[in-house]
């Protein structure tokens, strides 16, 4: 019997998810644009989904729960992306820019 070096360890998946989370946090704080921030949020959500799937595969007794919640995360990410992108387009039409720094009021 042989064991795979990498893809049989939960730590590898958790570390990849952690790096995705750190990338997302860095991008969320350092990028000024709305769409760049949305991209960073997608990275964070992907790290969360990868965590769900890894814990589900390696430690959970029920093999469907993690997949179900990863699907929920995907649905919420799709809804959030739709809302954010339409807000970005509406803001661009009105102000001709989509940087978060310049947006402080909800109504002009």
């Amino acid at each position: 019997m042989i064991q795979p070096t990498f893809f049989g360890n939960i730590e590898v998946y958790l570390l990849v998810a952690l790096i995705l989370l750190s990338f997302g946090l860095y991008g969320l704080i350092s990028r000024p644009g709305l769409i760049s921030m949305l991209i960073s949020v997608e990275l964070i959500l992907n790290g969360a989904g990868l965590n769900f799937m890894a814990f589900n595969t390696f430690t959970a007794p029920d093999k469907t729960e993690g997949a179900t919640f990863t699907l929920f995360v995907m649905g919420l990410a799709a809804a959030e992306a739709a809302i954010t992108l339409s807000i970005a387009v509406a803001i661009y039409r009105r102000f001709r820019l989509i940087t978060a720094d310049n947006l402080s009021g909800m109504k002009d």
């Binding site: 990028r31 000024p32 644009g33 769409i35 760049s36 949305l38 991209i39 992306a81 739709a82 992108l85 970005a88 387009v89 803001i91 661009y92 039409r93 820019l97 989509i98 940087t99």
Partner: peptide, 14 residues
């Protein structure tokens, strides 16, 4: 949809 939004709202010169 992100690609569409990038093309509709011209990205700012970050």
């Amino acid at each position: 949809s992100m690609v569409f939004a990038v093309m509709l709202a011209r990205p700012p010169e970050e």
